[in-house]
Nucleic acid binder design. Structure first.
Length: 495
RNA sequence: GGCUUCCUAGCUCAAUGGUAGAGCAGUUGACUCUUAAUCAAUUGGUUCCGGGUUCGAGUCCCGGGGGAACCA
């Protein structure tokens, strides 16, 4: 033991902890205090009337993010859900004792303050503080809020810090909330019912993807986390829910990349007595409502290409095989039902510099051309229609050409945003389609779903919308991690 | 999974293989309308972890951890 006090002035945690202990010793514990928040920051500022200072009283609350100590007065800023508001704390107004305590506050502390609104000589609407309360002591320093937080790992692992100091992140993620709210509004206006279906399933169907497996102890059985919403929602069509949707998390046990997170949010919508053409109208309404109500504009600069995407009006339609023919520079589709098709498709793909795996089915070779060469170039909203039937076993076959299906893939910004089908409701054809699946991507046969179809499902249009990708597109984000509050990372011990 | 690359003070970043630094934050002081406030002084390091090479390693090599980009 030394009687010389240990120098802790360099250790911000220790300094703040000491302040907390001093306060508690003096009979005040910030963690037992609370305050009122009568207005958020921006709402409060709107209450000020030009030329009428110190009349309107407000109670605001938030985190201290700027402190400017002027000796016998302070200008500080607090930060709440709406942004920042400046507080003016003057010794003459609050009194000696309160002022001395106020000087001990640190950046990051959470306080409540009440006072009246006035405009400073530089024109900033400010609260002239009469009383304040510390309601949470920040024991850890904030990352500097001038440079912000740049370390991507810390941004994702400690998103709360990112939200405090990086305004772009905060805005982008709040925009996501407003986009999702707008989607719900558009669907509610059209009398769609929002439902919730199981995440834990015995068969993970409705898509082709590797599922996560978990175990139920009491039942002594494994469950799969759902990889799609489709088969449950269609059972509801059988049950007489004519317009349903679910906005839910689905899970795919696959790689993590800029466009993939193992858990992500899917909107699936089903409308009885409609078809894929009806879904075109609906998805346009959903996205155009977002443009009008959330973004306030119908044109967006596509971050990756620099092109301006125009969401207004009607959107382009293009047949899958027309796009393929255009990409390969020949009439490849004319060979579709001939023995030379496979060889021609392989040659065409290789000519475009694509690797063709020996085990691939022909439709997979052709689709490689689509996903590598065509989709990335579809920047403007484009409905790709008349896809080969092998790609979607749950869709209705086209009446004129049984090798095609009545579906669209909506591509925007080089990404697949929403596939939609005229849903298959013939239980015999559906069984055959499940059985006939080939290639790498196979869906599990769900016999209980087939039983439901045998009870009769109305004809319907259905659609899936990748909400995360839609948000990437509409917020100009570069990665799916930028539109997911807490993206999946490898777990690690406390840092 | 493969390849490339990154990890240094609370934050943002420096440092030919040769004494680990700056700005902000922190601490002390001045200032009753500041705007990245200003002025003066000043503290602060297990350079992600573990080995190795070397007279000497933040830097080079090997292994491990975590992140990012590209590919699969």
């Amino acid at each position: 033991m030394s009687d010389i006090p240990q120098d802790i002035t360099h250790d911000q945690y220790a300094v703040r902890l000491q302040k907390l202990q001093d306060m508690r010793a003096a009979g005040f514990d910030p963690f037992r205090a609370n305050c009122e928040q009568t207005y958020f920051s921006a709402d409060a500022m709107k209450l000020h009337v030009e030329g009428q200072d110190n009349i309107v009283a407000v109670k605001v609350a938030g985190r201290l993010v700027v402190i400017r100590d002027m000796g016998k007065s302070h200008f500080v800023k607090i930060f709440d859900q709406q942004g920042q508001i400046q507080l003016y704390v003057k010794k003459d107004v609050v009194g000696e004792e309160t002022y001395v305590a106020f000087k001990k506050l640190d950046l990051g502390d959470i306080i409540g303050a009440e006072g009246t609104l006035f405009k400073t000589k530089t024109g900033e609407i400010t609260v002239r503080v009469e009383k304040y309360t510390l309601v949470a002591k920040a024991l850890r320093p904030l990352p500097g809020n001038w440079h912000g937080l740049a370390d991507p790992e810390q941004i994702y692992r400690q998103r709360y810090l990112d939200l405090i100091v990086n305004p772009e992140s905060r805005e982008r993620l709040m925009l996501r909330s407003r986009i999702v709210a707008s989607v719900r509004r558009t669907l509610a206006e059209r009398q769609f019912l929002e439902v919730e279906t199981p995440v834990l399933e015995g068969v993970a169907g409705g898509a082709a993807a590797r599922p996560f497996v978990t175990h139920h102890n009491a039942l002594g059985t494994d469950f799969f986390l759902r990889i799609a919403l489709e088969l449950r929602l269609k059972r509801l069509l059988v049950g007489g829910y004519d317009r349903v949707f679910e906005l839910g998390r689905i899970f795919r046990n696959e790689g993590i990349s800029r466009k993939h997170n193992p858990e992500f949010t899917m909107l699936e919508v089903y409308q009885a007595y409609s078809d894929f053409r009806g879904m075109m109208v609906l998805i346009r309404a959903i996205i155009q409502d977002i443009c009008r109500d959330v973004l306030g504009k119908f044109e967006l600069v596509h971050t990756a290409s620099g092109q301006v995407i125009n969401f207004a009006g009607e959107w382009r339609e293009a047949r899958y095989f027309d796009l393929i023919n255009e990409a390969v520079g020949s009439k490849l589709s004319a060979l579709r039902d001939t023995p030379g098709y496979r060889e021609a498709a392989i040659v065409a793909a290789q000519k475009l510099g694509l690797d063709v795996h020996a085990g691939w089915e022909t439709f997979e070779v052709v689709n490689e051309i689509f996903s590598k060469k065509i989709e990335p170039a579809l920047i403007q909203p484009t409905f790709v229609t008349h896809l080969p039937k092998e790609l979607c076993p749950l869709a209705k076959l086209n009446r004129e050409d049984a090798g095609l299906i009545d579906v669209f893939e909506l591509c925007i910004g080089g990404m697949e945003i929403a596939p939609a089908y005229s849903e298959q409701n013939d239980p015999f054809v559906q069984r055959e389609m499940f059985l006939a699946q080939a290639g790498e991507d196979q869906q599990k046969m769900d016999t209980d779903f087939l039983l439901a179809l045998e009870h009769g499902m109305p004809p319907a249009g259905g659609m899936g919308v990748g909400i995360d990708r839609l948000c990437i597109l509409l917020t100009g984000a570069e990665s799916i991690r930028d539109v997911i509050l807490f993206p999946s990372l490898r777990p690690t011990g406390a840092k």
